[in-house]
Structures are given as structure tokens and as C-alpha cells.
Design a protein around this nucleic acid. Structure first.
Lengths: 144, 144
DNA sequence: CTTATTTCGGACAAAATTGTCTTAAATGTA
DNA sequence: TACATTTAAGACAATTTTGTCCGAAATAAG
């Protein structure tokens, strides 16, 4: 569904958000430890997300990553996914055709549009706040 | 969504099915030409599908691939997908956790189960016959 | 039996994705 | 200023996925 890169990114952002709820910045080593993602690789992903203004980064002592209250509530899962994986999951053809639409549909097109829409809605309706809260309350887990 | 390998496989099977409707066997070169998939690679994928009894292969002159009337109606998209990509798309965690279930759900788990179910239903309810008919009637296309 | 045609199977190769390492830049503190 | 801490960025490496090639096996026909 998502690339490994994207999975790492989503997990990292959710973890950062739980820490931001406590007013704490999160260091990359802490993220790696608590999400099980590879440290250096995750650092690059977070760079992408910082450039997309999904999270914020600070260098130097007491630095790290955080999300503002505004980001916490405005950022949707779809924002993270499209920042990393692009919009193939929202618009791409299920059989990989370069163009596939109502006029020239692939054999699965009509079956596909509806599930693609479901995925899109699920991702655009899920906020960072929501997921971070579930994790913080111990209702969900990031490691397994 | 699906691996490239799986996309090639699905396209090839649908094309073979249209030819089988005319009582013809299909050679791998013909498949490659009409689906835009790489010939040698697609041949390997078809090997997997043959071993799963989704299609049939015949060596020698007048050989090739075909599907029986029974396969045409019994084979579901889900059979092709799970033969090639396994069942990650049906059961796997959206964030890649090795285990993710009601007891220990990842942050996206509850959002995910329903779309996964939609995908599963879509794939198990779509028959090869249905897709091949659409293609044969010119209502859908495989190349673009 | 020989030959032509076709898939089968395994080794090999290329490309994309995922992951690591090292050096630079930024920044807070003494 | 000097130093310790942290992210930034880019080169490099490993792994996985995708794709190619070639000889073997099967088989139909003369």
C-alpha cells in the first residue's frame, strides 16, 4: 500500500506528535528507538516532511523535531503520504497504465475507482491529532 | 497497490482469456505485444500462474497458454493477486508492523480494516470472465 | 528420426528502493 | 570564542524488485 519510506515517515510523525503533546522536542535517536525505524534513513524522511511543513526541525542542543498545535490538527494522513509517495495511490491506475480514465479505462478501472475513493477519504479524514492521541493513551502501538 | 509483477500477470491472464473465448491458445510473444509487458519476465509470471492452476500451458508447436471455461468463471482477481503478491494486501498492517490486530492495533489499524475489507471484496467478487468480456467488447483497454 | 516451435528453469544483469556513513552547518552554553 | 549537541545533505552500500538470456525439455508434423 505505502512504501517502506512512507511507513517510517508516518510512524515517526505520530511519535513526534505524542511528544509534542507534552511540549517536548524529539531527537532522531529517540524516534528510531520508539518506532523501530532505521535512524539515518528516518532522518532523511523527516527532512522531506520538514520541507513540506508537516513537522519542524531544530538544530543544536535541545534541538530535534516537533509539531505545532496547528500542525497537529491540520495535518492529515494524506498529506504525509503524498509528500513521500506522491499521488499514485490517489490517482494511479491499478494495472499501472500511464493513462487510465473513464474514456480509456483499464479492465479493472470501474472496480478500482470506488476503492481508491475509499482510501482517499480515509486518508484525508484522518488527522495527526487523532492518531497521536490513540498512541499516547496506550490504545495503539508503534512497535511489534 | 499491486507489484509490477502482479500487474503484468493480471494483464496477461485477461488477454489470454479473451483469446480463449475464441478457442485460441496464446503465445508469450503475442501476450507481450498486446499487453506491453516484457516478454521473458511475463513468461516467468505465467509459470507461477500455471502452477497455481489459474491458467494452462502447452509446449511445442501450436502450444501457448489458455484458460478453460471453468477457469474463466471460477478464477477471481483475488486468486491472481494472492498467487503472485501473497496475502499482505488482505491481511498486512498498513504501517508494516509484523503483527497488528484488535488486541495490539497500530495507530491506523481501525481506519485500515474497513478499506482492506473493501479491497478484498472488490477482488474476490471480480471474475476473470467479467474482465475479459469487457476487453473483448472494446469497452476497456490493456495498452496505454 | 529429425526438425521446428514453444514453454521451462536457472543463472545473470539492471534498476529501484532501502539503508549507512561521513562531513558540514546550525545553535545553545560556558 | 570554544565546545558539545543536534539536524542537513550527499556519497556510498546493501537489498529487493524487475528484467534478460540461454540451454533444456516437451511436442507436433513431415
Amino acid at each position: 500500500m505505502f512504501s517502506k519510506t512512507c511507513e517510517h515517515g508516518i510512524k515517526a510523525v505520530i511519535y513526534i506528535a505524542t511528544q509534542s503533546m507534552d511540549g517536548k522536542r524529539t531527537k532522531i535517536g529517540d524516534i528510531a528507538k520508539n518506532t523501530g525505524t532505521p535512524e539515518a534513513f528516518t532522518a532523511k524522511v523527516l527532512g522531506q516532511l520538514t520541507r513540506h511543513n508537516i513537522i519542524n526541525s531544530y538544530t543544536g542542543p535541545y534541538g530535534g523535531f516537533d509539531v505545532t498545535e496547528e500542525q497537529m490538527h491540520n495535518v492529515k494522513m494524506s498529506d504525509i503520504v503524498s509528500a513521500i509517495d506522491g499521488d499514485a495511490i490517489f490517482n494511479g491506475c491499478g494495472l499501472g497504465l500511464s493513462e487510465c480514465n473513464e474514456q480509456f479505462p483499464c479492465p479493472m478501472h470501474h472496480k478500482f475507482v470506488s476503492v481508491r475513493q475509499q482510501i482517499k477519504e480515509m486518508l484525508t479524514q484522518t488527522t495527526l491529532s487523532e492518531l497521536a492521541t490513540g498512541l499516547k493513551d496506550g490504545k495503539t502501538v508503534l512497535l511489534r
